[in-house]
């Protein structure tokens, strides 16, 4: 469970406030206008940005001052998810040991993760030789070997073609179920949210609203800000 307790991020005129809980094993879509602070919310949970006020409490543990690597979180970015000079196998292996100090079963885990995302054949390829979708699969495989209970997705499939995007979403959803993850996904596509998320966190006007069930969010009975955003 992620608890955002009167959390405020304030920097150079940009402000984001959040005060709610995100249930364990939920799949939340994070929606809202551009620049509202969707990525900021994820960065606060992942520990990339310092809180101005309040707390982020993950499974009862206060995370203030805990560095990103020590948090039970894997985050996948829109791009630059892999080191360009390392092949995909090594990029995944970094998820197990930052010094690439690998035991036999670690190697097996890397192979297995690559197989799970369908990259076995491309284990020795570098990101430059792979397609955009394949590079994002590296990040997914690395998230798998890291075995962190929380998965944050910052529009990782925004640049992909619609078909491929559906495939990737399905894969993420499978992994979410399989590993019983708590997943947050920033997206610009209400369609994506409907397809995979069971709840929606809407961000507007400097505030992240508590999660609303996906069905209710898209029911058309929402307030002005939401209907303006959805164009309904």
């Amino acid at each position: 469970m992620i608890r955002l307790a009167q959390t405020v991020y304030d920097s150079e005129g940009f402000r984001l406030a959040a005060d709610f809980e995100i249930a364990r094993h939920s799949f939340s879509a994070v929606l809202g206008p551009s620049g509202a602070g969707k990525s900021t919310l994820l960065s606060l949970i992942a520990g990339f940005l310092p809180l101005t006020l309040g707390h982020v409490i993950i499974d009862g543990v206060e995370t203030d001052g805990v560095p990103p690597a020590a948090r039970p979180v894997s985050m996948i970015f829109q791009d630059h998810n892999a080191f360009a000079h390392l092949d995909s196998w090594t990029n995944v292996a970094l998820g197990i040991s930052p010094s690439l100090d690998l035991a036999e079963n670690d190697r097996a885990a890397v192979d297995e993760a690559l197989a799970r995302v369908g990259l076995s054949a491309l284990a020795r390829k570098r990101p430059g030789e792979m397609s955009g979708g394949e590079v994002q699969r590296i990040a997914l495989a690395r998230a798998l070997v890291r075995q962190k209970p929380i998965l944050l997705l910052d529009e990782p499939f925004a640049a992909l073609d619609p078909g491929l995007r559906q495939q990737m979403l399905a894969l993420v959803n499978e992994l979410h179920q399989e590993r019983r993850l708590t997943t947050l996904m920033v997206t610009h596509e209400p369609k994506d949210a409907r397809a995979v998320a069971d709840q929606v966190i809407f961000i507007d006007g400097g505030e992240a609203r508590p999660p609303a069930p996906t069905g209710r969010f898209f029911s058309g009975k929402q307030d002005k800000a939401v209907s303006r955003y959805l164009g309904t």
């Binding site: 992942a46 520990g47 990339f48 560095p67 990103p68 690597a69 020590a70 979180v73 894997s74 985050m75 970015f77 630059h80 998810n81 080191f83 360009a84 000079h85 390392l86 970094l94 998820g95 930052p98 010094s99 690439l100």
Partner: peptide, 21 residues
Amino acid sequence: RLCAQLGLSGWPRFRIAEFPA
């Protein structure tokens, strides 16, 4: 950010991530 999340720091970070790039 990727390094921060993976906990790459110090010598391994230099050897694996920074120097090759």
